[in-house]
Amino acid sequence: MKRSPIWSWFWFIIGVLYFFIPLISTLEFSMRMIRGKYTFEAYRVAFQDPDFYKNFGYSMVWAVLTIIISLLLVVPTAYWVQLKLPKWRPYVEFVTLLPFVIPAVVLTFGLLRLYGPCTWGRRLIRGSSSAWVLTRSLGANGTGAQEKEEYGCDCYHHCQRKCPFHNCLSFYKRF
């Protein structure tokens, strides 16, 4: 290289500072539980808290589960489309772009309105049990409390119009 890499070093150092200052600050912040001195008290408290393990474990379980499901779904598909159905490749590629086109919060919004409480999708998933749900709801006192109790459905608290799936005379606010 002809030029001296002074500017390269400059940008590199700025980058390193950008990377590390927030991380160091987080570490420093975490050690300031007791006023006036640096301790690992916050970590001790966290590791002694049963809730910490519960929440952390929950996150871990979901992280691992989604990885397994993704692999099961994507690896055979990639294999298949590469070797057996190369014509389908553009369509598969199109689908892989969709999660980027639909922002996560928008997708969540759509999923909730499709499969959330008091939706057609939810009813579809319940499938065969829905007829039973319907008859049970008709017998209920109309508050929807029974569904909430038995099926985790929030009809009574969240319905704005008549919930069409459980026929409860309640209203939903969210959907």
Partner: peptide, 27 residues
């Protein structure tokens, strides 16, 4: 039956990507 190899992938995409989008569009 070769197409069936891609069925799980497209079924997943249909249920959890396309249908929510269509639902948003329609509503």
């Amino acid at each position: 039956w070769t197409w069936a190899g891609l069925a799980p992938f497209f079924l997943f995409a249909l249920l959890f990507l396309l249908l929510p989008s269509i639902s948003i569009f329609v509503r």
